[in-house]
Write a protein that binds this DNA or RNA. Structure first.
Length: 764
DNA sequence: CGGCCCCGCGTTTTT
DNA sequence: CGCGGGGCCG
């Protein structure tokens, strides 16, 4: 136990040693926040507090998993009994146990965002409202916001302000959509992500005895990333901690980046009011990064008006200054970063896994994937199109979901005609219409259908042919045969049987295309993950059934898949995903107006500050060196646009930016002829490892040749092959050529980047 | 009913 | 550009 405390700074030690009472830990980036949290939990256990009475809440499964591993190292295996996980996973577990109390069954389904959107689309159709006005995403986020502020449909309907807002935005029917959506979920015995928090609140609010049970159970509560809690989460914690008041929250207002999900920085401020006898610990020393990075980050965040007072400092090396890299195109940005990755690995003798490329949006990843692949640089990409979002995976899971919870209408819609069994859209419409009229689930509706229309005269007739009725009956029997086995077969056998018996496997195998083969591989990977899940839980008990696997899988993301540390790969991820992580070398890419800060964020000071905090998070991931890049032109939705450097670059104190790169990338405001670029890049001397100003030489050399190509010229492009120029367009300083390529089709290219080779010039 | 093609639209960010 | 949804035709 002495060992634990010896590893800590005085402040950290004090924070760890406070066992009882409320404590607020304000922890700057890299200040050893996770270490304090893990050690505090270990310390509790070493002081004979039973692990099962400790509740530790995190925001990602990854954070929970890592923390648990670290605690096991210090305090041993009993740490497995800790209640540690995300808000969503912990409270979904509790809701399983208490489901009946709130009118659900314990086998409830958890709908992911895709499911929710699809239901909302269905409602919009049902209500016959304009889906251009009522866009599913907008409606969903409105509902999500309501739930996160604990507003039920009734509360929403009677709220004048919300009604006003919806009228203003010409969407007065959102309240009605919410009502229907809410009921549909209930009828399907399903909860969406927000419901997990909403219903936990309802459960605790309306059932004092149940609340009391958990208040006595969880004697010690710890919350990580407290600045990212929303109203629903805040209230759950507040209720649970009310009696014991042994609550520890850790947070950093400067790293609050989830307000789009309803997070409220104020929660961390309210802590002082809620628990007046709290003790506050400020962790201000950054043990991760160089002084340059910490100071640069401080200078950046100082531009935000709203923030808690805190002085972060580093006593590490001064370190290298930040490089700012300008690229002409997004493509070139990819190439430059890729070659800098190589230079870093060989020049600094570090591993690929010490390097991360961080971007604002997932869509940016592709270019870096390409450029890294081209150079044979191993990389690992997080987020983006999730494995669990793939159609074949969702289909397989939908069968399992339907077997576990037949009321799950979304699952039913997904699989009733997959593989195609002749129950098409028009039949489905009839089934759905009947279900709606009679307030039944689809499964219940299907259960009422006769085998033929000539059956007993009081039997249901929805107006489909006998041949279809027969197919529906066959489907029903198929699902019934699955339902029987839900609680008798272990998750793995169940899943592999369902994939064969449903006909999915045969359908997939019939497709010999590369995509078809990859789909089968994905299914195999899914089965493997189920096997892995069984193996994991067998060590701590019996073999789990499919229902248990399903409730876990819906709260799991790609992020959580084995991040086997042994693999030496460059990490690509969004900044949001990078929160809480650290890397020696960080590349922050795409620092352009409209991208970062995003175009949606530049209207309000509030969201601009959040973007700035996001940039702060990105910068402070770097231990040794940060490099920032932007591109002057970028493909967006298939066509080229030009962009200017992000305003945030000017927020960093110049003294922390390498002089050569600042000058070349930012101060020079050259827009005119490219010949100027060329000359300047020649002047940039070699004192710096990278020459940010230096564009791809080849494209420069080609410019003069091709800048004034007439229409009709036959040209050759490295990627698109040969084609003919059909139009020239001068836009600002760019000359764009519309080229009809013989094989690649029509493209619009900016001449100075296109590297065209002239094949034949009609005017010569 | 099912498959194919075309059109329209989208980018925040995650549980 | 890439995806998903809707529409049309076989």
């Amino acid at each position: 136990m002495k060992d634990i405390l010896a590893d800590l700074s005085p402040v950290q030690r004090d924070a760890v040693r406070q066992i009882d009472g409320p404590s607020l830990i304000i922890a700057g980036a890299g200040s050893g926040k996770t270490r304090v949290l893990t050690y505090k939990i270990a310390y509790l256990m070493l002081n004979d507090i039973p692990p099962r009475s400790v509740l530790a809440l995190t925001f990602t499964n990854k954070a929970a998993k890592e923390m648990k591993e670290r605690i096991i190292k210090v305090a041993g295996k009993q740490a497995n009994k800790l209640w540690m996980g995300t808000f969503h996973s912990i409270f979904s577990r509790i809701l399983r146990t208490e489901a009946e109390t709130i009118g659900f069954k314990s086998n409830y389904t958890i709908y992911d965002t895709t499911d929710s959107l699809s239901i909302i689309r269905g409602i919009i159709k049902e209500m016959n409202v304009n889906d251009k006005v009522y866009r599913d995403r907008d409606v969903y986020s409105r509902i999500s916001m309501a739930k996160n502020s604990l507003m039920t449909p009734a509360a929403y309907a009677s709220n004048a302000q919300l009604a006003n807002e919806d009228i203003q935005s010409h969407r007065p029917k959102i309240s009605g959509i919410y009502q229907r959506y809410f009921m549909k979920c209930r009828n399907a015995n399903a909860m969406d992500f927000d419901d997990l928090l909403l219903y936990t609140n309802i459960l605790f609010r309306d059932n004092p005895d149940i609340l009391k049970k958990y208040q006595q159970w969880f004697k010690y509560i710890l919350v990580d990333e407290y600045q990212d809690t929303n109203v629903a989460q805040y209230l759950i914690v507040k209720r649970l901690a009310e009696v014991s008041r042994n609550i520890t929250v850790v947070g950093d207002d400067a790293q609050s980046i989830y307000s789009f999900r309803g997070a409220r920085i104020e929660n961390i401020l309210n802590f002082r009011k809620d628990y007046p006898n709290y003790t506050e610990y400020k962790l201000e020393q950054n043990y991760r990064s160089t002084q340059t990075i910490v100071n640069a980050a401080n200078s950046l965040i100082a531009k935000n008006k709203k923030q808690l007072k805190k002085t972060c400092f580093s006593e590490g090396d001064v370190g290298e200054k930040i490089d700012i890299i300008r690229a002409f195109t997004d493509q070139e940005e990819g190439q430059l970063i890729a070659s800098m990755v190589v230079d870093t690995v060989y020049g600094k003798q570090v591993n690929y896994s010490d390097i991360a490329i961080l971007y604002r949006t997932n869509a940016q990843s592709r270019i870096f994937e390409d450029s890294l692949r081209r150079r044979n640089i191993p990389y690992r990409i997080y987020g983006g199109i999730s494995f669990y979002q793939r159609a074949e995976i969702k289909d397989a899971l939908a069968y399992m979901r339907l077997a576990v919870n037949p009321l799950d209408d979304e699952a039913m819609i997904r699989v009733i005609n997959y593989p195609a069994r002749g129950i098409g859209n028009s039949s489905m419409d009839k089934i759905q219409a009947y279900a709606l009229d009679n307030n039944l689930s689809l499964w219940e509706t299907v259960g009422k259908l006769p085998l033929t229309n000539t059956g007993p005269k009081d039997s249901v007739n929805i107006g489909v042919k006998d041949s279809i009725l027969k197919k529906i009956a066959e489907f029903r029997e198929l699902v019934e045969s699955f339902i029987i086995k839900v609680n008798t077969e272990d998750a793995y056998s169940f899943a592999s049987n369902i994939i064969r018996q449903s006909g999915m496997m045969a359908e997939l195998k019939a497709n010999r295309t590369p995509e078809g083969i990859s789909r089968i591989e994905n299914i195999e990977e899914l089965l493997n993950s189920i096997k892995g899940y069984i193996k994991n839980s067998e060590s701590s008990g019996d073999s789990p059934m499919i229902a248990e696997y399903l409730q876990n899988v819906s709260l799991i993301t790609d992020m959580d898949k084995d991040s086997s540390k042994d693999s030496n790969k460059v990490t690509l991820m969004t900044i949001h995903s990078a929160k809480g992580l650290e890397f020696s070398y960080i590349f922050i890419v795409g620092m352009e107006e409209g991208l970062f800060p995003g175009s949606n964020s530049i209207q309000s000071e509030h969201s601009l500050e959040e973007e700035r905090r996001l940039f702060y998070v990105a910068l402070t991931r770097a231990a040794v060196k940060a490099t920032i890049s932007f591109a002057q032109t970028r493909y967006r939705w298939g066509n080229l646009g030009s962009s200017t450097p992000s305003r945030f670059l000017r927020d960093i104190d110049k003294s922390y930016i390498s002089a050569s790169s600042a000058k070349s990338a930012l101060e020079t405001r050259e827009k005119p002829q490219l010949s100027n670029f060329y000359k300047k890049s020649e002047k940039t001397d070699g004192d710096h490892q990278y020459k940010p100003l230096k564009p791809a030489m080849k494209s420069q050399e080609k410019v003069d040749e091709t800048a004034f190509i007439p229409v009709g010229t036959e040209v050759e492009h490295a990627r698109f092959g040969r084609g003919r120029i059909v139009g020239i367009d001068v836009e600002g300083n760019d000359v764009r050529a519309k080229i009809e390529f013989y094989t690649a089709g029509m493209k619009t290219l900016i001449l100075k980047f296109a590297q065209l080779e002239i094949i034949e010039n009609p005017e010569k």
